[in-house]
């Protein structure tokens, strides 16, 4: 099949161009016929291209990323933020340590559900902690948790039944972090 269509692609458009420019042939019915030929050729051209594409990507094509990847990456990034905050302001360790542990537990649990290791080259957001100003630090963490809570709630709403409970717990946990940061 690929052979047949390829032949049409090569012959028809060339013939059309020659006819209209060189001959200037006014034959209406002939022009219409040629146009129809060009259309067929264009339509045919798409087929072998698509065919090649499918064939080339074949077996080593990676599976599409799991829809939970962003949430898992966010859990890892949130843990990083808290660790950085604790490093910058050790006095907050008691308050923030358990929350950092929770984000790690979420990342691990999401990884289990996804069933694949984290994709390489997906860097966790570089945590920046405003050293020395606990109020500013907590405000930043609250903002991140608020965003994280919304993301987890959206993921829960869209999830298949078997993932809904875990995502619900993650959304609820992030809401309790907001409370703990007050």
């Amino acid at each position: 099949m690929a052979h047949d269509t390829a032949e049409m692609v090569l012959t028809c458009p060339v013939a059309t161009g020659r006819t209209t420019q060189r001959d200037g042939a006014p034959g209406h019915s002939r022009r219409t016929l040629l146009r129809a030929g060009a259309l067929v050729a264009l339509g045919g051209a798409a087929v072998p291209l698509t065919g090649c594409d499918l064939f080339d990507r074949g077996d080593d094509k990676p599976p599409p990323p799991d829809s939970l990847e962003p949430l898992a990456a966010e859990s890892a990034a949130l843990e990083g933020r808290y660790r950085a905050a604790i490093a910058a302001t050790p006095a907050l360790a008691d308050r923030l340590g358990a929350i950092a542990d929770t984000h790690r537990a979420h990342a691990e649990e999401l990884r289990k559900v996804i069933g694949r290791p984290a994709p390489s080259g997906s860097p966790a957001a570089t945590p920046t902690a405003a050293a020395g100003d606990p109020d500013e630090l907590l405000a930043e963490l609250r903002q991140a948790e608020q965003q994280g809570r919304e993301n987890a709630a959206k993921a829960c709403a869209a999830a298949p039944a078997e993932r809904a409970a875990l995502l619900g717990s993650i959304a609820a946990a992030r809401a309790t972090h907001l409370e703990a940061l007050k």
């Binding site: 358990a98 929770t102 619900g168 717990s169 609820a172 309790t176 409370e179 703990a180």
Partner: peptide, 15 residues
């Protein structure tokens, strides 16, 4: 928090 229990959060509420 009112009871003075720590930590005041749990990793997976309701699980």
């Amino acid at each position: 928090r009112t009871a003075g229990v720590t930590p005041i959060t749990v990793p997976f509420p309701g699980r």
